[in-house]
Design a protein around this nucleic acid. Structure first.
Length: 703
RNA sequence: GGUCGCUUAGCUUAGUUGGUUAGAGCGUCUGGUUUACAUCCAGAAGGUCGGAGGUUCGAAUCCUCCAGCGACCACCA
């Protein structure tokens, strides 16, 4: 053997790209077999940037499933895709734009869309390249984008069908408004952060009754004193004895000198603050509901820019909401209305995309009525027609689905699907289009052959962040439009944290680029290192040593093959068809190590299959690692060396054939996890035996 | 306020229905290798399985309580 041709260290950098190219060119990623289908619609990554380790893990998981089923002879399809990711992408482009001091309003819609399309091209290409580098065997001929032409048809159709059946309604309701993105958001797009705030105790004066001698006051507490400018009632709990006598009385809202009523509502917690609530229906969700119950005026005092507006003293008008608070507090102090303040910890809503504080306000938006749509989506999960893995997420899903509220689906941004109503300028929530993914990616609303063949899909694997935003919505959408579940299993993979146990963050510089790892250790090593940690756990602490172990394992496989190849050269056994009959040869099995190896090989095969089907990839990876390294290499190869060196010609050949067969099966078992090195070594092995064999990717899984 | 998860060797962790000396990788230590691999081999040290009770012939595993960490949900004004 020529040393320069087959070095003792595996070199993924040169081998991996060649192998990927050959797989792709030969069309092995497209579904071929006729037996039972296995389908995964890849969670389409946002085109906001490049893929991170979480994506790499998810891609590996899917690829393991896909490669396993392909080798099992199933008609296997993995549809790749990309998501235009509405607000997220627009924000990235706006951020770029802001470097030249401009806003989207400065350049206008058409110009911003141009920038977005440039962005889209750049990052789509980058993401696709990353998937290829990691070895993803998805069918690129079927790639879909949530903003492509066919997809736009699907979104339009979906909107119209919902509307026709009365599920979509337009209305003035209280929504979560992001003053930076200048759009409404759905409830789950709001992030609540715990913060230290201040509770202001304010003394409101009651209108005097004729018989009264003195003025009477009610003291209430608020964290947002500036909103009192929009107060239209003061509320107490109907059972609160302290305040019962005030119900129905009129009271002055300070600074605006507005006369409002003291009302009684169950929503008031007598134990919070003083047990009295100032009601601002236009700027608070609870207050809005109280307002609806008591037919209160909704007085808008904060506008879409988060500046003060409406029927308020001139001095506040146009002030930013935080500045307005300062002003209001100062004036309240002066008028001796502010009794006291105290600190408190509470949760403040922020935009999940840009981090700006949300301003609840009333706005005309489109809503999808959820109650009825949720019913079948609850049923299919309760009846285990859709299974969550790990099972604990079933409860998480059901709890949310059972308390679901209407979904605000319109957005006042420019990047996305336009609402298909004449004269309507708004776009749809990006998740409205993602919700259609499992069937729209297969061609819906057209009745395509793919749709007939591959829907419902088999497995959806995603991060737990997406359970409500995406998974839940795919389930009710699939049931509504297809009258069929979108997938049978939802696997929620663990979240990758950094070594300190914190979330990896690009902005904090704690992210790891999978491409760097692939460059340094190879795709197989990266895949193995990641997946060896993924089971039913909820998080993974990332450590490079796991990837190093993967690298060493690749190398181990290479060297074991190298050893076998050297002996094939020495003992001419050209044309030996790899045949598992040798595993039951009685004479060979007299050697303890061989007997054990055959036993463990059988056990390993069944364990790996079981673990893959149970989504315990860590255990599957352990199994192949343990068997191959510590049984086959450390025991079996070592103990057969004597026979290979000293045995008779016939004995040598027999032993060698035995080793070849175990090696070949090991490569097959390793292939879903480490596709490149296994494919490469499979090729070398067959070449040395002068056998024309199919590539490993389409070789049947060992029996 | 509620729900869920985690806590096992110096570090990262496996341990799926309770059952022989609790496994592994990294690190450490000792020894080895002229012909597959030092990205290696043989071996060693290192764990009262977060704490306290309980169930059981038997508990890392089941139950109760407690502590620390983390995630999520909720109309904490």
């Amino acid at each position: 053997m020529k040393k320069d041709k087959f070095k003792k260290h595996y070199n993924p950098q040169t081998i991996e790209p060649k192998i990927y190219k050959s797989w792709e060119e030969e069309g092995y990623f497209a579904p071929k077999a006729l037996k039972k289908t296995f389908t995964i619609a890849m969670p389409p990554p946002n085109i906001t940037g490049s893929l991170h380790l979480g994506h790499a893990l998810n891609a590996t998981i899917q690829d393991v499933l896909i490669r396993y089923h392909r080798m099992k002879g199933h008609r296997t399809l993995w549809i790749p895709g990309l998501d235009h990711a509405g607000i997220a992408t627009q924000n990235m482009v706006e951020k770029e734009l802001s470097k030249s001091g401009k806003t989207r309003q400065d350049i206008g819609r058409a110009e911003l869309l141009k920038l977005l399309q440039t962005w889209e091209k750049k990052y789509s290409a980058r993401i696709i390249n990353q998937f290829k580098k990691i070895g993803a065997s998805c069918d690129w001929s079927r790639i879909r984008y949530t903003l492509d032409e066919g997809y736009a048809r699907a979104v339009k159709k979906a909107f119209i069908l919902y509307k026709k059946k009365g599920y979509i309604k337009r209305g003035q309701r209280l929504v979560n408004w992001c003053p930076r993105c200048k759009t409404a958001l759905s409830d789950i797009e709001v992030e609540h952060r715990e913060e230290k705030g201040r509770l202001y105790y304010l003394k409101y004066r009651l209108l005097k009754k004729k018989e009264d001698q003195k003025f009477e006051y009610l003291t209430l507490a608020t964290t947002r004193p500036e909103t009192l400018l929009g107060d239209s009632a003061v509320a107490v709990n109907p059972d609160d004895k302290k305040y019962k006598k005030y119900i129905g009385r009129k009271i002055f809202v300070p600074l605006v000198k507005r006369k409002v009523r003291v009302i009684a509502d169950e929503a008031i917690d007598p134990k919070f603050g003083t047990g009295i609530l100032k009601v601002t229906p236009a700027h608070d969700a609870v207050d809005f509901e109280i307002g609806e119950r008591h037919h209160l005026k909704k007085i808008k005092v904060i506008d879409e820019e988060a500046e003060m507006t409406g029927p308020i003293p001139l001095k506040y008008r146009g002030l930013d909401r935080f500045k307005a608070r300062e002003g209001v507090v100062k004036d309240l102090k002066q008028e001796k209305i502010l009794v006291k303040t105290e600190g408190l910890t509470h949760k403040v809503p922020y935009c999940y995309r840009c981090g700006q504080m949300i301003e609840p306000l009333i706005s005309k938006q489109w809503f999808l009525s959820m109650k009825k749509l949720a019913e079948p989506a609850i049923k299919v999960v309760e009846e285990d027609k859709i299974e969550f893995v790990p099972e604990r997420y079933k409860k998480v899903y059901l709890r949310w689905m059972k308390s679901i509220r209407d979904w605000c689906i319109s957005r006042q941004i420019w990047w996305g699907h336009k609402i298909p109503i004449k004269g309507e300028e708004d776009v749809l929530d990006t998740w409205f289009s993602s919700a259609l993914w499992p069937f729209a990616s297969l061609g819906w609303p057209k009745e395509t052959k793919d749709l007939q063949t591959f829907y419902p899909t088999s497995v959806l694997t995603t991060a737990k962040d997406n359970i409500f935003l995406w998974v839940a919505r795919m389930i009710f959408s699939g049931l509504f439009f297809m009258d069929e579940i979108p997938f049978k299993v939802v696997y929620i993979h663990p979240t990758i944290l950094n070594a300190e146990g914190r979330r990896m963050s690009k902005s904090l510089g704690t992210g790891v680029d999978p491409l760097d790892l692939i460059k340094k250790y190879g795709a197989d090593a990266t895949r193995f290192g990641l997946i060896a940690k993924a089971g039913h756990n909820q998080e993974i602490r990332y450590s490079e040593s796991s990837i190093v172990a993967g690298r060493n394992f690749s190398n181990k496989m290479l060297n074991a093959t190298r050893f076998i190849l050297m002996n094939i050269e020495k003992n001419k056994i050209d044309g030996f068809e790899i045949d598992n009959d040798i595993l039951s040869d009685k004479k060979l099995l007299k050697i303890e190590a061989n007997k054990k190896t055959v036993e463990l090989l059988k056990k390993t095969k069944s364990e790996i299959e079981k673990h893959i089907l149970d989504f315990r990839f860590n255990l599957a990876a352990d199994s192949i690692y343990e068997f191959f390294w510590h049984q086959f290499c450390d025991k079996c190869l070592e103990q057969n060396k004597d026979n290979l060196y000293q045995g008779s010609e016939q004995e040598k050949k027999k032993v060698l054939k035995f080793l070849i067969v175990v090696m070949a099966d090991s490569l097959k078992l390793a292939h879903p996890f480490m596709p490149f090195v296994s494919e490469h070594l499979w090729g070398e092995l067959n070449k040395a035996l002068k056998i024309k064999a199919n590539p490993l990717i389409i070789t049947p899984w060992p029996k």
